[in-house]
Design a protein around this nucleic acid. Sequence first.
DNA 1: GCCGTTTTCGGCCCGACTGTTTTCAGTCG
Length: 575
Amino acid sequence: MDNIAIARVLREIADLLEIKNENPFKIRAYRNGADIASNHPHDLAALDETGLREIPGIGKDLAARIREIAETGDAGFHRELVAEFPPTILDLLNLQGVGPKTVATLYRELDIRTLDDLERAAQDGRIRALRGMGTKKEALILKALDERKRFAGRHLLPDAHDAAAALVSHLRERAPEAVVEPVGSLRRGCDTCGDLDLLACGAPPSLIDDFVEYRLVERVLGQGDTRSSVRLAGGFQADLRLVAADSRGAAMQYFTGSKAHNIALRDRAIGRGLKLNEYGLFRIGKETRVAGEREEDIYGALGLDWIPPELRELGGEIEAAEAHALPRLVDVADLRGDLHTHTTETDGKDDIRTMAEAAKAAGLEYIAVTDHSRSLAMANGLDERRALDHAARVRAIDAERIGVRLLAGIECDILPDGSLDLADDCLAALDLVVVSVHSAFNQDRQQMTDRILRAIEHPHVDIVGHLTGRKILRRPAYALDVEAVVDAAARHGVALEINCQVDRLDVNDVHARLARDRGVPLVISTDAHSRTAFGRLRWGVLIARRAWLEPANVLNTRPFDAFRASIRRNRRGAA
DNA sequence: GCCGTTTTCGGCCCGACTGTTTTCAGTCG
């Protein structure tokens, strides 16, 4: 049982307890446990009860449940709940406007167990007959059922950025005197976004009208004096909140989240006789305001350094801020090179020189040309002869000193048995070797782990590309013991890539932070297949920032010569 | 269910909006 599977059981317990109208704090404890499990870098199944209880938020009961799930695949407590309620009713919870109380009523009064049951009941007019419900609620349910079919789930980060930017500029035109900006998961740099949260400070109330009249609004979910939610064409939900200009810092803090970070911060406020909400930080009793205009002042009044949004996930940032020990996070401007690019020699769209010029225009000092190897036939992958000829062409252009330095590299396939796709003498003759998995994704966890470990042990390997193979919103990562791979990378001085393809962002923030903690160097690379792709370094940088990476943790922040000296093949005494 | 420099018991984050109600419960973020 991996952490995701453990998290799923805990989350289902929380949802079912909520439908059962149990103690809300018990529900929160389970939900918190699920969050801890899904974000924990180590396998919880490998920890004993004592080890589990050392994790804040995991106590006696949760530790026992997690052990039980790890050993048997399920928990007796979970089975008892499922016997009480059919698990299919959890689907109902995902509908906009349907919460646990409604689900419980629907099940108790009308024996509604599935989305189909619910649709029939709404169509037959049986919902409106229930106490506390009416025709509007019934219509809302039908609407939510319809939208669920069309807009499922989350969106890629860059899509969310584009949609938010267009909406922000619409609002800024209507209220030039106001400060309008994205908050929420967008500001925290999460790798997917569920909705767009926008904050407007010092705007007239009429901005709410301008918001709901935006040309892409398909449905208004709610509209009041200070906030509104809409559904946009394309599936985004957008939320706008208005506050006075002098509450901007408090509101930004509040609406940036994360939820867990905010709860911890408000808890800290209470401990100091203060109350924190979106309008400011107040002294309880006297109701005087201590801070509110600037985020820095909110954190400062709570005895903390200002915390960058990407770190606000309750992953130790509050303790670090208290100790003045927050990292100086890596920034796009720190990056000097890109170590994963393709050309027309395999499946790229542009030739070596065009890619080099584009990298230079993007402000980079060096790139590695890393076309595919032989076994990726679909991409016209290179055999040894072509790889060396291609390397000679790369070096010839580099010798012209065109303003960006070039490394002759390869993205070499890791074959299913863990051997590499090109001969050792060829790999030894290149400047940089990135190795990646492009085949046999369905190997079991042990096979895949052994496969990648074997590749890392190969003396000519410098970097592992897109380690987990995930395609965001399309396919999950393959089964892999990431911790074992990270430890091997640390032993052999191999770097891990943060791949900037917008649907990869692989490794993710959790794994990158684990790598940092174990002393594994990282690189942030575009995997560019055309001259337009260098701009996407910014997405990888967000992952790096969420992983607490400083410039020193990222090899391609170094100048060209220092970078070359830092990769495995060029280090003295490298394994 | 978790937790402890007020506490091993008694706390646990906060507010806006909607619909169905005549004062509030449910949902959401």
